[in-house]
Amino acid sequence: MIGFERVSKWYGSYPALVEIDETIARGEVVVICGPSGSGKSTLLRTVNRLESIQAGRIRIEGRDIHAPGTDVNALRARIGFVFQQFNLFPHLTALQNCTLAPVQLGRLSRSQALEQARALLARVGLAHKADAYPAELSGGQQQRVAIARALAQQPPLMLFDEPTSALDPEMVGEVLAVIRGLAKDGMTLICVTHEMGFAREVADRVLFMDAGRVLERASPAEFFQRPQHPRAQQFLADIRLPFDAR
């Protein structure tokens, strides 16, 4: 479904992505992990062109999405993106957050969009908060509304950029449960996350990145039990022993 072909990006002379070659199949759940600054969020954001690339190609269903002349709005309308900071629209209710794009883009009538939004809010367990403004919701609830908003695009592909990193610990579970549900329903899903338990349980494949390169790609079982690359071994040791005085 998604093919990265020698994708590279630099910030000035600093390499953010180095010759990424990767294929992600329809229905696959891929978790990208790695230390901060490794380029994992950047890689995710190139998929809906929130970031540009300077070399290589990214194909989605065969189409080169960074080619000049690509309709970027049409591309994004078919990809759900969930931000670390939720980025809900604070002047709109939860329901209005979910109806804005489908109505503005003319994909659904207002009544269809409302019906869909109510169904999606119910799916993320927030039917009773439809008329609440983001400021009236907890972090976990806001992120679940953000997922519903992304799902309102009826996207074949969902991207999650550290969806639980800005949450208080007790709210991480409710958000992961929603994402787990999407994975079970067979949606293609790429998730940048530090939640290793979640990765082990849900992912079909784990990509480990450092310094703009994918250093390891493996099933979760292999990755967590027998990491091959020394950086991956170090990374796993670090996150397993966060309080160890090394």
């Binding site: 809906n48 929130l50 709005n73 049409a74 591309l75 994004r76 309308a77 078919r78 990809i79 993106f81 931000f83 980025n87 809900l88 629209f89 804005l100 794009a101 503005q104 883009l105 908003r149 992304a150 695009q153």
Partner: peptide, 8 residues
């Protein structure tokens, strides 16, 4: 970014 990511 959030608005553009929705395709607006």
């Amino acid at each position: 970014e959030a608005a553009r990511a929705l395709g607006l």
